[in-house]
Design a protein around this nucleic acid. Structure first.
Lengths: 239, 239
DNA sequence: GCTAGTTTCAAACAAGCGTTTGAAATAGCG
DNA sequence: CGCTATTTCAAACGCTTGTTTGAAACTAGC
């Protein structure tokens, strides 16, 4: 195979012409997992796309599940660290004053958008993959994400609780859940958008525009007054 | 097999003791697709759980994909018809006046919650299945849902556009998308909730409480003023 | 230049998959 | 009953899956 011959990393002039097997598998796996989901993506599909031997996947990562986790960790770990650092810097800058909801939301979004921009193609793929992983029923995926996100979620819940002191703690948790829902759904699905509206593709891909639309929506929802008993009763009267 | 012997529908006294093969496959498939997703659920798993022969699935439904669509259609079709009828009745009751966002949201939620309550167990399972189907990358699922939802989405977008006349049409589409995201994420994931907060299981299962929390959040988001250019610039200054 | 450690490779493994087949069993009707 | 159409059944089909194996190729240190 001609492709296999250039598989090892080789430098010509100052540019790395070919990356190593491990990275090639990760790149191919990221794209294919994103496109077809975990179960529907076979190791043969991945290793063929990466132009490496089938056994290389198990050799470098152990199993398909561990490969999937490696794909997630590679980008998720730095992104969540970015998020927490950004939140910390906002908080120290604000001193004693509580942050606004918009600023906290920005601390969640900006690292995600930075990731989407940094990689020429991989970044966007990864966000779609992440959004889909959230809805994946596989237990090992759910446990992995729970563990990976626990610390970050706690930080953001505390920040929102400080920004919304009039709300009960439990209500803050619910609203954070709604925020995560709208976020992951939006990041995951470009397809879903086509159902709801017919946009120009160029508009859909504008990330800053997305934050500009989503942040006010979510901030207003977070600041909403709680429904009283009569409201709820009224909405249900016809059920 | 003892179970196979009572497979045909038999009446004793006035009660139907056993339902027919087709329904048993649908029930088992609904639960297993919900639990493991489409790809990870095999026909052998389904037919074993339903206590029917393996070939019965292909005989009655043609293929695994058609079985999945049948599982969705069985409940989705009536639910979406309910939604549109409810919206129509709200609109005629309001006469010329535009509906409030809360009322429109209720018209989306109430049929879903009614479905969750009607079935002793299947209803709740189905909503989780539906939420996950939204995030499934399989093309045949996405096309099916697009087709199934197109009419309903159009109706609701028109209703929201009337309720929010100051917003550009495109902004309404985006916000409807965010609403759908928070809704499907909330309906799909009881697991995700555990990450964000530790609730009593009894509280999580209270559907009316869920609407009471989600409706004000979404309505406030829908009514939010649009961000101006300086806001967006401010949020991004640190990126 | 040899040796030890790492990585690649083709091949095979057992297991599970969706689907098909043709015969057996059942149901409905004249 | 007898006939026909529908439904059930065990068995097998061809194919794909994740993983393992042992030899070959390569790399780096002495």
């Amino acid at each position: 195979m001609a492709i296999a011959a250039i598989q090892k990393s080789v430098r010509s002039a100052d540019v790395i012409v070919e990356i190593d097997t491990k990275s090639r598998i990760l790149d191919a796996a990221e794209e294919l997992f994103m496109e077809h989901g975990f179960e529907a993506t076979s190791l043969r599909l991945i290793t063929t796309a990466a132009a490496v031997n089938l056994a290389a996947a198990n050799y470098h990562f152990g199993s398909k599940e561990e490969l999937f986790q490696a794909v997630l960790t590679r980008r998720l770990d730095p992104m969540n660290q970015d998020r927490m650092q950004l939140l910390t810097s906002y908080e120290t800058a604000a001193g004693n004053k509580a942050l606004t909801c918009e600023v906290i939301i920005s601390a969640m979004f900006i690292p995600a958008l930075k990731l989407a921009r940094d990689q020429s193609q991989g970044g966007k793929n990864f966000l779609r993959l992440l959004g889909r992983a959230y809805a994946d029923p596989a237990p090992f995926i759910r446990e992995f994400l729970s563990h990976q996100y626990a610390e970050m979620i706690a930080r953001y819940r505390a920040a929102f609780a400080r920004a919304l002191p009039h709300l009960p703690r439990e209500e803050v948790s619910w609203r954070l859940h709604f925020v995560m829902g709208a976020l992951s759904y939006t990041l995951a699905g470009t397809d879903a958008l086509k159902v709801i509206a017919q946009f120009h593709p160029t508009e859909v891909n504008n990330d800053e525009l997305l934050l500009k639309r989503l942040a006010p929506f979510l901030a207003a929802g977070l600041r909403a007054p709680m429904a009283n008993a009569s409201d709820a009763h009224q909405w249900f009267q016809e059920a």
